[in-house]
Design a protein around this nucleic acid. Structure first.
Lengths: 345, 345
DNA sequence: ACGTTTTTCTAGAACGATTTAGAAGAACGA
DNA sequence: TCGTTCTTCTAAATCGTTCTAGAAAAACGT
């Protein structure tokens, strides 16, 4: 039941002041090499594992980690290769700066109290991945004075972001479909409230996420004559796309094209077609968004965005003092594959 | 340039003691509802965002986050759906306990100094994902007195782990191959030193990770008459499997079966076969390990392990005080698909 | 009305480090 | 030899909380 070994204990044992022990760890040039050696070895003997992280964080004001905030549940984030790719890019830069990544779950409950992870987290900055503009967690972070970089363009001019031009990107998709003669379109959107229930048809105002909304607007822009319906099967996941597409395909009112607002959802739609003996690109067109690796295998027409680069760029804005650009637009590209074809007449 | 708003500022403004403000946030039953209300609203007015995370962590000794340590570079972790699945399971439980996940990069350099992320990190516990037993980072964590749960069975009886019986699992694979008549086998292993260079052939002692070693032993057990060679193309990734398999296939000495010690590597090997016009299961057998989602699509024979459950179980051991079992063995299962077939004679 | 319990609040000491300002001694130049 | 500049080390304050022990006030039972 011995009391914990602290910097003080080590100092006493080595016959020096606590400051010197601290310097031995943090500022080696502030003391003679010999003494440093001696301190380090007595520390070792005492089983001292180096300065306590929390204490250091408190005193120096640096936590050595950046937070990452995801839409929805944390577990869902890992089901989308797009999110995973982003994380990989971010992790690359984090690694470079010897910084940890703190994945914060945003509990819907307990926003007021203090037991929220977003409140608790000791972070220097935060990456906001596809979280809707008005989310309370963002307010919390802003209040805490934590610098943020979002993957969506914000409305505030002083907000940092690394994003694509959602409208323009979706417009490319819309133009592609319009060119192929599609006029009956169903868009598969992410919607938390639809989770676990029947798929639901939504109006544009009910679409929560700003980026989803923008993509829909982009589509509309290039498809002014088309009837565009919005359907959600739940969270952004393969299964949601599957369920929603099944519902659409089994209805009386089939579209000629299905647009997944993410590739995972579009792939779910392709699966729904497959089980019904329908061929994507011939019987019905399916297009996606993101260009995840699986999209290529599946022959899915989609919008490519450099997701890993996006992660890296966010990391740079967050961590690299040399990075001055705080609002970065990444390029997108229409990738035409076999899943889209002329509308049957 | 006003000084920061702290609990003290709020206390002064509300005309109460700092302790009371603290209680307003943490122990609502310790003060009257009216006063709590008043304190919270003055806090709001002053722009106080709640107790500082670092200070709280220091004083209360709880950081509210668990660390996750991965093999190799953090970015590589995201390239393996197996690791991602684990993370998803772990995240599920973390979410339940309002705990954040801290992904720590383990920089190979700077193990001694204090700027290491593993040293810096403010965490209550740590999940060790496929990190070799003797890794210095583990020593660091042990010294810091941080409880750990590993995904590999450790040698120490007091170590916590959630793992599979690697030997037994690999033995199933070996038995399967032996039954099919294979006697010339190449095993694709993960090896950091082989990264970026030519694929290398290794001896069993050179295989770093304990679990890899165990799997090889399991194979050997059921294939006593076979010649088993170990080849690495680098880190555990699709590209490494691809490169290594290409090297093997283009050599004079082709095996009849290739064993990927992970599915991603096995899938890389299948790709290498494809580009050479070889059909898996006919010309050469390929088997993997893990049963990631893509394995099904590709028709890869593999060992299934319930990875998401594994993540969840680790989470429980880490966070749930009710979880008493500290050494858990998960089940595995041989899944036979089209990539394995009888050895050509 | 009076001791006892309960509720509500506070003072002051930790928590374990870093930082600032400066002391003591060594080295230096003239 | 003497002031000056380095180098090496230290004392004490501070970071923003939470916790322990206890005071003051209110409520209670008889």
């Amino acid at each position: 039941m011995s009391p914990r070994v602290t910097i003080k204990t080590v100092a006493q044992a080595a016959g020096v002041s606590p400051s010197t022990v601290s310097n031995a760890y943090n500022k080696p040039d502030q003391l003679s090499a010999a003494l440093r050696e001696r301190i380090l070895s007595t520390a070792q003997e005492l089983g001292y594992a180096g300065p306590d992280a929390s204490a250091r964080a408190l005193r120096s004001g640096k936590a050595g980690s950046v937070g990452v905030l995801f839409t929805d549940k944390l577990a869902y984030a890992f089901s989308d290769p797009y999110a995973v790719g982003f994380l990989a890019g971010l992790a690359e830069v984090a690694e470079e700066f010897a910084t940890s990544l703190l994945l914060m779950p945003l509990s819907s409950t307990d926003i007021q109290g203090g037991t929220n992870a977003v409140q608790q987290a000791a972070i220097d900055a935060a990456a906001i991945f596809c979280v809707a503009g008005g989310h309370p967690a963002l307010e919390t972070l802003k209040n805490r004075g934590i610098p943020m970089v979002s993957t969506d363009r914000g409305d505030h001019p002083d907000l940092s972001w690394v994003a694509i031009d959602e409208v323009e990107a979706a417009a490319k998709l819309g133009a592609h479909l319009a060119r192929l003669g599609h006029r009956e379109v169903v868009v598969l959107v992410d919607n938390a409230e639809a989770a676990g229930t029947q798929p639901v048809e939504l109006s544009l105002d009910e679409v929560g996420y700003t980026d989803c909304e923008l993509r829909i607007r982009g589509l509309q822009k290039e498809m002014p004559d088309a009837r565009i319906r919005l359907v959600s099967g739940g969270h952004n996941a393969f299964s949601s796309g599957l369920i929603a597409a099944e519902w659409v395909l089994d209805s009386q009112d089939r579209p000629t094209a299905i647009v997944g607002l993410s590739d995972v959802q579009a792939l779910g739609a392709m699966e729904a077609m497959r089980t019904r003996g329908l061929v994507p690109g011939r019987d019905l067109s399916v297009v996606g968004f993101d260009d995840i690796p699986a999209a290529q295998t599946a022959g899915l027409t989609t919008i490519r965005q450099p997701i890993r680069d996006k992660g890296r760029a966010v990391g740079r804005v967050l961590l690299d003092p040399a990075a001055t650009e705080r609002q970065i637009t990444m390029p997108t590209e229409l990738v035409v594959r076999s899943s889209s074809g002329p509308a049957p007449r």
